[in-house]
Design a binder for these strands. Sequence first.
DNA 1: ATGACTGGTGTGACCAGA
Length: 256
Amino acid sequence: MKIATYNVNGVNGRLNVLLRWLKEAKPDIVCLQELKSPNIKFPEKAIRDAGYTGIWHGQKSWNGVAILSRIGEPVEIRRALPGDPEDVHSRYIEAEIKGITVGCLYLPNGNPAPGPKFDYKLEWFKRLSVHSKKLLKLKGPVVLVGDYNVMPTELDVYKPERWLKDALFRPEVRTAFKKLVAHGWTDAIRTLYGDEIIYTFWDYFRNAYARNAGLRIDHFLLNPVLAKRLKSGGVDRHVRGWEKTSDHAPVWIEVK
DNA sequence: ATGACTGGTGTGACCAGA
C-alpha cells in the first residue's frame, strides 16, 4: 500500500499538477495540505473522476487539509486538533481507511519568530503532542503525516547556519519534534535514508530547486505497528520541476 | 544579508508562505 503526502499550495490553482501526479504515482491514500480553498470550492468532481474519494477541511484563502483514498472511503474521526476551541485554522483532519488511522496535519509556519505566530506554532505543537499520545494507545496501524514546518536536524536544510533563527529551525521547534517522535513514532523517511540528504521543499526564490537549496519539512511518523510494515519511501522531486507546481514535492511510503 | 516568487483575494502602498 502506498501512502503519500503533498502540500499542494492551492488545490484549485494546482489542480492540473495534482491530477497529473495522481495518475502517474497512483498512491492509495493521499494527505493534502494548504488547500487554500473553502469547502464549497474543493474540486470534488475532478478528484472523484481521478478515482479518489475523500474528506476535506477547507478554509477561505489559507490552510486547509484533505485525505483522499482510492481503496475505500475515508471514515472521518475528527477535523480539528483537540485542546483549543478558539483555534479557527483548518490544519488537522483524521480518518480511518481499511483499518489504518491517518492523521493529516499542516503545522503552523511560525514566522516571524519570536512573536505571536511563533507562540501559536509552539502551542499547536503541544496540542499535537498530547493528541499523538492518545493515537499511540491504539492497537492498529497509525500514521501522522503532513507538513510539519520543521527541519528536524542540520541534515535537513541546505545551509543550516542561515536558518538558526527561523521558525522552521529554531531549537524550540526541533526539540518539540524530537520529543514528539520520542513518544514512540518512527520518522519513516529518515529511517529509510540514513545520513543521506533528502529534501521535500524548495523555495520559489533564488532558483532554489535548480540549486537543490531545499528543506525536509514534510514527514511521515509511524506507530510501531506500521513501522514494522515499512518497505520503502521517497520524494517525487521531479514534480517540483513541473509548470505551475507547488513549492513542495509529494512524499510517499510503501507499507506491507 | 537581502530580495527574489506564488496563490488567493479582489484591484492594496494587500497577506501569507518557508
